[in-house]
């Protein structure tokens, strides 16, 4: 009896872990909350694009030549900002810029998130299997990861845009190509964690009890790298969004008339002197969503990393 009480006295301060604590920690971090709010707003805008643009009855495809002057410039202040056209209209075509930005969020987030999911899937499979099974398979995949890390990925992405069949929808293909090039980082991290887990007692015990490899991988290794995968995913999303925007900016990504922030920014170069708003709205949208994901990723990493928590 006495022994138990004595032990309670010297009990180690409990280090709280788990999903709820994590959410609690994040909720106390004002930067994380602001970033999460921004992300939610953008995701909602992307999902509800039809409903939002229906308020003023605009869409990103209709030409409004009557809102432009003879040289194709929008008439009025701030690139033709009005009660109907909240962000003004596009030079030369008179299409509604607000609708283009809102539907652009759909393109951007769709490609960014699907590419991330694909990269996470490939990275996790390769990382867990190479870490768990080791041997020559591990040596080859690790070398491939090393090479892909320093690769001129953007150059390859641009080159691959030439072979996308013209009659198929481009956004899914772009997501596919970006995702296929995006997995090495995840694979390296997951492999490292798997190597450490493989030596842990519960895994060794399972093995001793005769569990099959796939059972250990799925039932014990995967759940334990889950949190890491979530963090890494949130850290790589902005890179995926940026890749699509860069391709579209260069004129080899999403093709018209599908709205894309990158392409609009690319077109805005020609008009930046006379209609700066045409650049500023899609540019700000791209900057904000990237910033929000970066800030949120940082906070998530801090909340999960015991090293930074101690400081």
């Amino acid at each position: 009896m006495t022994a138990t009480t004595a032990r309670e006295d010297v009990a180690v301060p409990a280090r709280k872990t788990g999903f709820r604590t994590l959410v609690g920690n994040l909720a106390r971090d004002p930067w994380a909350v602001a970033a999460a709010t921004t992300i939610v707003v953008f995701v909602l805008a992307a999902i509800l694009a039809d409903a939002i643009t229906a308020i003023t009855g605009v869409d990103p495809y209709t030409y409004n030549q009557h809102l432009l002057d003879g040289r194709g410039q929008p008439i009025g202040w701030g690139g033709g900002i009005s009660a109907t056209h909240w962000f003004g209209v596009e030079p030369l075509t008179g299409r509604d810029l607000f609708a283009i930005v809102v539907y652009g969020a759909r393109t951007s987030l769709f490609i960014g998130i699907s590419a991330t999911l694909l990269a996470v899937l490939i990275g996790t499979v390769v990382g867990i299997t190479s870490g768990y099974f080791g041997g020559w398979y591990d040596r080859i995949t690790s070398r491939a990861v090393d090479v892909m890390f320093g690769f001129p990925t953007l150059v390859f992405l641009i080159a691959l845009m030439a072979i996308i069949p013209a009659d198929l929808p481009r956004p899914p293909f772009i997501a596919l190509v970006i995702g296929v090039f995006g997995w090495p980082g995840i694979s390296r991290i997951v492999r490292g964690q798997t190597l450490a887990l493989r030596e842990r007692n519960f895994v060794v015990a399972s093995k001793a009890m005769g569990a099959r490899s796939w059972r250990i991988v799925l039932g014990q290794v995967l759940p334990n790298v889950g949190a890491t995968i979530v963090v890494v995913a949130s850290v790589i999303i902005p890179g995926m969004i940026a890749a699509e925007a860069a391709l579209s900016f260069l004129g080899v990504g999403v093709t018209p008339p599908t709205p894309s922030w990158g392409r609009t920014i690319g077109e805005a170069i020609l008009w930046v002197r006379t209609s700066p708003m045409y650049l500023i709205f899609p540019g700000a949208a791209l900057f904000l969503i990237t910033l929000a994901f970066n800030v949120f990723g940082d906070s998530l990493r801090d909340a999960l990393d015991p090293r930074t928590a101690r400081r």
Binding site: A268, G283, F287, T290
Partner: peptide, 14 residues
């Protein structure tokens, strides 16, 4: 620097 990380090169250029 976090603003820099989040800015696309071309936006900074323009």
């Amino acid at each position: 620097s976090i603003a820099g990380v989040s800015t696309p090169v071309y936006l900074a250029g323009i």
